[in-house]
Computed example of a mutant assay.
Amino acid sequence: MLLAVVFVGYFIFGVSENMKGPALPRMQDDFGLSEWQLGLLLALNSIGFLLACSFAGQAIERIGLRTALLLTFGFMAASGWLIGGAPSFAPFAGAFFFLYAWNGLLEIALAVLSARLFTKNTGFMMNLSHFFYGLSSTASPLAATAVMGWSPGGGELGWRGMYAVLLLVCVLPMIPALAARFPKASAPPAGETRATWRSFAKDKVAWSIVVLLSLGVTAELAAGGWLVNYLEKEYAWQPLRASGLLSAFFFCFMISRLVFGPLTDKIGFVRSVVLFAGLSGALTCTGVLLGESGAVLLALAGAGIGPVYPTVMALLAKRYPHGTDAAITFTVTAIGILGVAGNFAIGAATDAFGYRAGYFLIGGCALGCAAIAAALYRGLRREGSVL
């Protein structure tokens, strides 16, 4: 039952995060948004995500993992109807903010549950869990495009109806969540104290992890949010073709977690991030420089960025075994702050210099993630604590 909650939960997370790709150009046309306003919308999503993350740890401690997950899944399903029924940009942005706030709580709750559950082969199991995120991320752009074209009663559902329909899937993991028996946080050994936000904030390694993961997550989510727009506006691709390449990105993203997950336990978590993030950044930047003929490289970049997030979650679980909840909450909250800046930067670069500049910045974020991870590896090796 717990595996069902984790796996289906991450599947839901992938749907809610990546169904927006094919819908964004339609939203932009309906509300008459500029690229800067589109970047602002994505930044507001990051703010909602951030606010939820900031109190997620306390909420989970007070109401328990089960209740937190049940509330999250229920309100995420309801947000689809709020988004679909929004009459203008302001309530639409508010409904999006509401969805991503609950996404933030879901992110923390699933990460905490995974850390408590997967105490052996942590790298592999974290990547396997996130494989389901990749699976739904692969399918959701094509599913969103297909559902937008449905014509029940003679009229197309469009992006509004698509959000209302697809987010109904959020009710599915509520069933195993009600039946499962949830694990509690492990107590530290005698003489040791549990890691807290305060102790975590004083740890240089912790901040290195925050920065590298912020860059990695920005590269991952920005590809999901901007790739379709980039292909349609820069190369005049049709929506179905552009959505197909986004699905190819997430297919590579998904398979890499399944294939490379076991390797992270063998070659080390930090070295894995250096390798995978560097590969993603190199492929993205090369794909932009080559133009339309290099578009396939933008999809292959998903194979590099895919294992980064779950591998860092495994690193946190191993480095902070008695305080993983605080470590995860602090890290995800901090990357939410930097994610706001990242979305603003990408939107501003696109607005000022064009789509190529904005997408090139996405590749730069992945390369920055690899560079920080390399510096962290050298520091951990000096102190003899490489993981």
Rank of each mutant, 00 (worst) to 15 (best):
E383Q: 09
L110C: 07
L283Y: 08
A111E: 01
Y163S: 14
A317V: 07
A179C: 14
I60G: 00
S186H: 03
G302S: 10
G244N: 12
G347K: 00
A345T: 04
P141V: 14
P176N: 15
G39E: 06
V165Y: 03
N103K: 06
G216H: 02
K20F: 13
L221V: 13
E220D: 12
L157T: 09
S293P: 01
A348R: 01
F330M: 10
V169Y: 11
P262W: 10
A179G: 08
P188C: 02
L178V: 14
L240C: 09
I305V: 15
V5N: 09
G379K: 01
Y163D: 04
W102T: 05
P189N: 03
G123V: 03
F124R: 06
L40D: 07
A185L: 06
W36E: 13
V8T: 14
R271V: 04
T264F: 08
S114K: 03
V112Q: 02
L290I: 13
A317H: 05
R181P: 07
C252I: 12
L380Y: 00
A277K: 02
V332H: 04
G302V: 12
A164E: 03
G342A: 15
A86E: 03
I63S: 05
G379M: 08
E234M: 14
F251T: 15
L290A: 14
A93E: 07
M19L: 15
G48C: 07
A366V: 13
Q58P: 01
F276P: 00
G268A: 10
A373H: 03
F75M: 08
A317N: 11
A143K: 09
T196K: 01
T286K: 00
L258G: 13
K184Y: 00
G339D: 05
P183Q: 03
G216A: 12
W102C: 10
I372F: 11
A370R: 03
V259C: 11
L50V: 05
